[in-house]
Amino acid sequence: MSPRPEAPARTRRHLLTAAAVLFVLGLTVWSANGIGVSLVELFSNLGRMGRLIDDSFPPAWSFWPRLIKPLLETLQIAIIGTIFGSILALPLAILAARTVSPSRPLYWLNRNIMNVLRTMPDLFWAMLFASAVGFGPFAGALALTVFTVAVVSKLTSESIESIDMKLTEAVRASGGNWLETVFFSVLPQALPQYVSYVLYALELNVRASTVLGLVGAGGIGMVLNTQRTTFQYDRVTMIVLFVFLVVMLIEQLSAAARRRLV
């Protein structure tokens, strides 16, 4: 038998593990103190929570016909945001793919703008557009458009960077220009991924659009907010149930479609 290598020293790794555990522990204590986590408060208020649950059940079943219109509006916000955002995202994704982008400065600029866009949560954009174009579903659709551009262009540009670049050489060897190279070698390879990301964005947007109303950007969230502020918890329960059903349904459909794509 040939000689085995010596096992690496263990002390260093043990020390690192211990340091990491201590660090996480410290973080937890610091955060808990900061926000006043208190078990006493939690248990002493259990009664109030019980009353809330009492008020919330049974759900106000008869309330559902009044939910259909705002819920459709919510879906429409998500659909418009997804479609507009995805159309804008495709050219941006191509420019943001290092291996395909025709110019270095353009690539760099695009990448950084995308990163900034993505840092902002969708509710922030909704508030911004609600102030800019007025409260209502249009503000919500604009917010989701920006959100979709950020998500889809980032994911798609990464897919484009992982395609087989040898194929682009074949189009260039035939005398193809940049656009023809993109059209005949980049897009055919990246399109299935792109469509899958668009469906994924639709799922995210349907979920996001249900709460956009909380900041005045239209849809069922606005109804939810009204009922909550007037303490009609049985109606709130009905809304939550309804939203849950619809979101689940759309996610299942979209996920099934995506599985068939890739």
Binding site: L167, A170, A173, S174, G175, P188
Partner: peptide
């Protein structure tokens, strides 16, 4: 591009778009 159009290239790994 004109010059390339006048020269057809064939590759070891074919380089055709399978899709």
């Amino acid at each position: 591009r004109e010059l390339r159009a006048g020269a057809g290239m064939i590759f070891q790994d074919y380089r055709i778009v399978r899709r």
